[in-house]
Write a protein that binds this DNA or RNA. Structure first.
Lengths: 228, 228
DNA sequence: GCGAGGTGTCACGGACTTGTAACATTTGCT
DNA sequence: AGCAAATGTTACAAGTCCGTGACACCTCGC
């Protein structure tokens, strides 16, 4: 799993430390000293996750988090808050910001990595670059390749994302709405039945390998990918 | 677990915040700024749970809770009260209104989600997606699969919901009316005898596994699922 | 601008579900 | 045993859901 992670932290020493640790863990850190800088960076390129210091000069981390959560484009980016021990009370005092997790400074790199991993997996397991394999199907997010029973399978972008999501959440029924949320993105206005069409295209692409049977319809509920 | 949850809160910021967190947790929030609005919404469609602010302009949350608890149609809807710290004294009084739980503001989303989950588990176990197992029968809401003695069982949507409800409320007789309310949903008008037909279909589907005997008729009263 | 591939929407038809009525059977009571 | 009420069972028409092909639009790269 490799992700680009934005570190928003005004203390240079701590920023450096975190960035170093992130690099060690295989991630790609971006840095910002304050909220304004962070906003600029984010407007250029969405990171996969944001580490956000609670106390910042100028606009506070709390405010920044709120703003990120308001903007449609950034509202789904996972946020981990960094708080000092003395600020711990504020977790409760301050209104909740919608952060995905909190870490109390000082923290160990081990803890940081663990939480990052947990948040990434919770928020977007299909974001990781892990190769997924289920019942003869194999999808490699890194090389963007899919194969069924060792035969290559050609997929369009949407079918790829759809299959990726299903494979990272197998043995579970997903309603059309859920699929739209996770594969198409939050709050995209698309007809629910469009999902059917893409399921159809995915099945068609898998037909030559007979693996289309893995994608099952649960009438009245949605679709499920099952390894059996 | 996905539930529709009514948020009754006059402070727009807090309402927005809660609604956002609920959505993140996979629920479907409905919103009301005051008690009257809440009553209207409820009369149209029963939510699975109500988050109710203690202090509201006009009719207070306490009064609203009492009224909801008086009406037969709404008396079983779980209620969680939101109270400010200064109102902590009133907690006991709050329990008197029939609230299932209370949360002191400000609170973390984690805590809110935990309490919601706990209340739903207690009051409406069929809303959760926990696997249910009784006497050889096994139902998995997540993957939408049922098996009896390890053999797969095919069920239609209604039979699935019916079995799910029975399995989450076993060893208890349910009248046809109760089954209609919980399985079909309120505001649905259907002949009571329709329940018989679906019970029949359910039994038929379970016959191959000999587990149809778990569904017992209580003459003059209704049906019961018993672990054997 | 122009073709190629990708995407969203629609409409049609078939398959499955569902509520109801009608008939059969069981149960409890006198 | 005989009766009425309750429940079991079946058939069916209407409705709903889903698979599928067609098509228009969009966006690229040439």
């Amino acid at each position: 799993m490799s992700a680009t992670i934005l570190v928003v932290e005004d203390e240079p020493a701590i920023q450096e430390l975190i960035a170093f640790n992130l690099k060690q863990a295989g991630h790609q850190p971006m840095r910002a000293d304050n909220a304004e800088q962070a906003m600029n960076l984010v407007s250029n390129a969405l990171p996969d996750l944001i580490l956000l210091d609670w106390m910042l000069p100028g606009m506070s981390g709390i405010d920044l988090a709120r703003r990120l959560r308001t903007d449609k484009r950034t509202k789904t980016v996972p946020i981990i808050m960094l708080t000092a021990r003395s600020e711990e009370q504020d977790k409760l005092a301050g209104l909740d910001t919608g952060a995905d997790d909190y870490i109390t400074k000082p923290f160990s790199p081990r803890e940081l990595n663990a939480r990052i991993k947990a948040v990434l997996r919770r928020r977007a397991p299909q974001m990781t670059d892990d190769v997924v394999q289920i019942g003869g199907l194999r999808l490699d997010p890194g090389s963007h390749r899919v194969s069924g029973n060792s035969e290559p399978v050609e997929l369009g972008p949407t079918e790829f994302r759809l299959l990726h999501f299903l494979m990272t959440h197998p043995e579970r029924v997903h309603s059309r709405t859920q699929l739209l949320d996770h594969v198409w993105g939050d709050h995209v206005f698309v007809e629910e039945r469009t999902v059917d069409v893409h399921i159809r295209r995915l099945r068609k692409a898998l037909e030559p390998t007979r693996l289309d049977r893995l994608i099952q319809t649960v009438r009245g509920t949605g679709y499920r990918l099952s390894g059996g």
